[in-house]
Design a protein around this nucleic acid. Structure first.
Lengths: 341, 341
DNA sequence: TGAAAGGACCGTAACGGTTCAGAACCAATT
DNA sequence: AATTGGTTCTGAACCGTTACGGTCCTTTCA
């Protein structure tokens, strides 16, 4: 009887001992967790859905920070954290259906991801992170658009008008190359869409024709992509004075490409990132710092906090503009451009 | 009827459509994963037990690499990966009992960890990693002892005889300070015990009285620990020519402490690590590279490979001695010591 | 001494799916 | 017309646990 294991106060010590003894003698391995879950309707775990290959989560510093925060929240609650395998290639949502969890955290997947749809169909609480507010489930994120707008304003105040952009992938299909304004608007990744839109707004306000600004997209998110993306932008328009990257990882790659070309940063070219990861900090990157660990922790707290009062809830965390040593006024100075021919 | 969902070939398309329709109309959310698991006796997930606070796994580069490899293997098999919260403070093995998984991977926990014992009681396949061979379950690891022996031999051939050691924690209790030979022998962490024993053997063979060698232990595993550990060793014996650290993270910390003291590496002092993580590589650290990602992947493969033939299986992965630029002959040269007074 | 109260123990009914045996049905063969 | 074979469909058993309510025994108090 399970009482012997779980509720020692419900029976006499003597009986308990006897039950446990015979259980051991019969080779009983202890209560089965799955059957228990079925009966109690508690799995003791939350599921994490990332659209990238599962292992990606361990290669991207920002994702690692998020995971750490989420793990922290789970740990506090004594809950397990189930990484759900959601291979973006095959549209195999079975893994979502098979996950025995009490809730889901969905981290930065495209709006139209079938796995996300499958999660929303499950009758368990869900928190989406770095996603648009769906109105039906809790959400945690930052003001990507506002933060990027602020960064752009800073560059504009330094005098930059001719810029290029390297961004992460905007949709589920692979498009390693230039991005049309249409594709920017229609981007299925909420984060990227908003960062680009913040840039577009700020530069448009400064009189720049955004449709003429070279924006290059990279499917894979690593330094090599940042480097090759930067190369593609610089090949297209060697005159740009600033290279705006939508993540620090891309920016770090861009820095290596700049170095390879003999461009001094920030004297010859300004490079900016987004996220505020450690290696970026060490490189003195101008960027927007976002509290990735707190984001994960907030998502976990939201999911595990049972208080039903005001649902759905939406949490926006603060970001901070970090002026590093990879940004400066363009060569020749802002004034020259203002008063020049 | 579950056939409609899972076995479309077992019934006519017409009935299937009808069943699914009414299911939707009744608001049926699809088959319950827990009930399914109970019946099929498959949870579709493997559990990962790390004794450290769950979040630690996301802060240690070697652990991250292991996790990535394990996640890769899980992904290939379409299996979930459940991080089991095993707070080392409270001896709460309930989380192990509650985990609905098809198997466990246990990563570098102390021999006497109650969570490990709880895992072994569960009637599911288990793979232990960086642990002693238990004889009853699969195991994957490296030859920590041999690898460290080889590294020590290299230092000895350079002429080092007077050395100090900074190691990770050796047992569940906190002991930030010098380690007696007894404690080294009795260490509950297999990895640390073997690395120290490899060192002891090599230096003993070279005529060094190992019991006189300062060995400092640090409970927390981060660069600050490496720095303070190095400081403690250097304070005790400023004459040492080499600082051997049992991990790269500690070694990186030791490098900062050396720099703080104005000691040039490797001219004034040799510093070595263990693991072969990226930041160590960038610092040119002399170390032993171990294939952490492969280790994780091998653990996953072993667990998910159902072939029952030769159990338990034991896998040893190859390591590689990396001679970086943090090691050199001691100042004054090896010869001076050989032929000196 | 009898009734009420409380505690210990035990039996049973879900939880929600999967599986399997067999019923019902239709078609083809003898 | 009856037997055979095959397919589609239905019903019941089972997976292992926990929640619940009932029985029985002991204790307490009027």
């Amino acid at each position: 009887m399970s009482n012997a294991y779980n509720r020692p106060d419900q029976l006499s010590p003597e009986l308990r001992r006897r039950v446990l003894d015979t259980a051991r003698r019969l080779g009983y391995p202890g209560p089965d967790p799955v059957a228990r879950s079925l009966r109690t309707r508690k799995a003791g775990a939350v599921g994490l859905l990332l659209t990238e290959n599962l292992s990606y989560a361990f290669r991207d510093p920002a994702a690692i920070g998020f995971l750490e925060g989420l793990a922290l929240a789970c740990e506090d609650a004594g809950t397990g954290l189930l990484l759900v395998p959601a291979n973006p290639e095959r549209e195999d949502v079975a893994s979502v259906h098979r996950a025995g969890v009490d809730g889901f955290v969905v981290y930065s997947v495209p709006d139209d991801d079938p796995h996300l749809a499958a999660v929303l169909e499950r009758p368990v609480p869900t928190v989406v992170c770095d996603q648009p507010d769906l109105g039906t489930v809790d959400r945690v994120g930052i003001d990507d658009r506002g933060a990027m707008y602020e960064l752009a304003k800073h560059l504009i105040s330094l005098g930059h008008r001719r810029v290029g952009v390297v961004c992460m992938r905007l949709a589920r299909d692979r498009n390693d190359g230039f991005v049309t304004p249409d594709r920017q608007h229609a981007a299925h990744f909420h984060v990227q869409r908003n960062r680009l839109s913040g840039l577009a707004e700020a530069f448009s306000e400064a009189g720049v024709d955004w449709s003429q600004v070279p924006v290059v997209e990279r499917f894979d998110h690593n330094m090599a992509s940042g480097a090759s993306g930067a190369a593609q932008v610089l090949d297209k328009d060697p005159q740009i004075t600033a290279l705006i990257c939508t993540s620090d990882v891309l920016a770090l790659g861009a820095l290596t490409e700049a170095a390879r070309r003999g461009l001094r940063v920030p004297h010859d070219i300004t490079v900016t990132g987004f996220d505020g990861i450690r290696p970026g900090e060490e490189a003195g990157l101008t960027t927007v710092r976002q509290p990735v660990l707190e984001k994960g922790r907030a998502a976990g707290k939201l999911l595990l906090d049972a208080s039903e009062r005001t649902r759905p809830r939406s949490v926006n965390l603060a970001t901070e503009l970090i002026i590093g040593k990879t940004s400066a006024a363009p060569r020749g100075g802002a004034e020259e451009r203002w008063f020049g021919p």
